[in-house]
């Protein structure tokens, strides 16, 4: 089996882990070893404080990813590791966008922000920071639109994900 991976779709994995030292490093090693770049990663405590939830997005071939799922699942501190790329899971991301606004541009900028449901969290004479939440495509579109004002800084949280209905994340 070839180990040279072809860039394909982005996969979104949810990993449910025991909240123990080293668990993130162990998971990151599996990805690195198989030549996968992690695009984004979020870690947070779950409702039961003994466990944490990780949402990881990574690109690579399906076969390679299947191996990663198996190897991550095998780690002693991992309870489960699921690829949600093909589910209808709820996926959200948040971004803070800082961009410059020259005189006369602010109204247009605010209109765009309103359209995307952004919240203005900082406002100065010549710059703004807005907060946006939503699916990744929505964020991309908003960042695209605000690009013309000159984006100074962009911070994205990475995806968080939850399976719908009774399905386990």
């Amino acid at each position: 089996m070839t180990t040279i991976l072809t860039e394909t779709d982005t996969h979104t994995l949810s990993v449910y882990v025991a909240n123990k030292p080293g668990v993130l490093a162990r998971i990151a090693q599996v990805f690195a070893r198989r030549g996968y770049n992690i695009d984004s990663l979020t870690v947070s405590p779950s409702v039961d404080g003994r466990y944490s939830r990780m949402t990881i997005t990574a690109k690579g071939s399906v076969e390679g990813l299947d191996q990663i799922l198996r190897q991550v699942s095998k780690l002693v501190d991992v309870l489960r590791c699921t690829d949600h790329s093909l589910d209808e899971a709820v996926v959200r991301e948040m971004a803070l966008i800082k961009f410059t606004t020259k005189a006369g541009e602010r109204t247009e900028a605010l209109q765009i922000c309103e359209h995307f449901g952004c919240k203005t969290v900082d406002l100065t004479e010549d710059s703004m920071i807005v907060q946006i939440t939503g699916g990744s495509e929505k964020l991309e579109a908003c960042i695209d639109m605000l690009g013309k004002f000159g984006i100074v800084e962009l911070v994205r949280t990475g995806k968080v994900l939850m399976a719908r209905g009774r399905q386990e994340t």
Binding site: E63, D66, R70
Partner: peptide
């Protein structure tokens, strides 16, 4: 016993 070996080298 280790399902992570399945398909790793040979399908």
């Amino acid at each position: 016993i280790d399902s992570a070996e399945f398909g790793r080298m040979i399908k």
